[in-house]
Computed example of a mutant assay.
Amino acid sequence: MRSILFMSQKADTPSSDVMKTSPQIRQDFSEAPNLTATIVMDGGLTRAPVSVMNLSRTNAQIEVHYATELPPTLSLLVNNRLELCEVIWQFAQFAGLRFSIAQAV
């Protein structure tokens, strides 16, 4: 099931108290500006260029270059590697992906 998460903050709440993350989660996350990739769908019959906005060992956030409804699973071709992914969420041309098997990227 896909979902969109929104986070709101009260004006009197300090920003450091809103979201606390463990150091391990922060270490697993890395930014990937200006990284291009390709999504592969329909058993390899359909390919589309995407921009990778964020990339970690287990997840990726992408921007599809044209608006399309993504299937529940697809493959992401990035850095000469083909990763099987589950689409966790999609909003317009943006989507969050979870790699099926966590591997170093």
Rank of each mutant, 00 (worst) to 15 (best):
V105G: 08
S51N: 02
L45D: 06
I88C: 07
L77I: 04
Q9G: 08
I62F: 03
Q61T: 02
T13K: 05
T73C: 12
C85M: 05
T13C: 06
A67M: 11
L55S: 04
L70G: 01
F29G: 04
F94T: 15
T13M: 05
S3A: 01
A102K: 13
S75D: 02
P23I: 00
S75F: 01
R81H: 03
R26I: 03
M19C: 12
S16I: 09
T38M: 13
S15P: 04
I62K: 03
P23D: 15
G43I: 01
R2C: 01
G43L: 01
A48I: 08
Y66V: 03
E69S: 03
C85T: 04
A102F: 04
K10S: 10
V64H: 06
S16D: 13
M41C: 03
S16E: 12
T73E: 10
L55R: 05
I62E: 02
P14I: 01
T13P: 04
E86G: 13
S16P: 11
L35E: 14
R57F: 00
A48P: 07
F99E: 14
T21L: 14
R98A: 10
P14V: 00
L70K: 02
A11T: 09
V40R: 06
L77C: 08
Q9P: 11
A11W: 04
E63Y: 09
S100N: 15
S51I: 05
L70S: 04
N79W: 06
Q93Y: 02
L35A: 11
C85K: 02
V64Q: 00
D12I: 11
M53F: 04
I101W: 11
P71K: 03
T13V: 11
S8D: 09
L84V: 14
N80L: 03
A60L: 00
S15T: 02
Q27D: 11
V18G: 14
K20M: 12
S51H: 08
H65G: 07
M19S: 04
V50I: 14
A95W: 08
F29N: 09
P71E: 08
S15E: 05
L70E: 09
E86S: 00
R98T: 13
W89G: 01
S75R: 14
S51R: 13
S15I: 10
V105S: 15
P23Y: 09
S51W: 05
G43H: 00
F6P: 10
I25G: 07
S75M: 09
P23F: 06
L84G: 05
I101H: 10
R57T: 01
R98F: 09
P33Y: 12
V105L: 15
S75A: 06
V18M: 02
L55Y: 05
A37Y: 05
D12N: 03
M1W: 15
G96H: 10
P33I: 04
L82A: 15
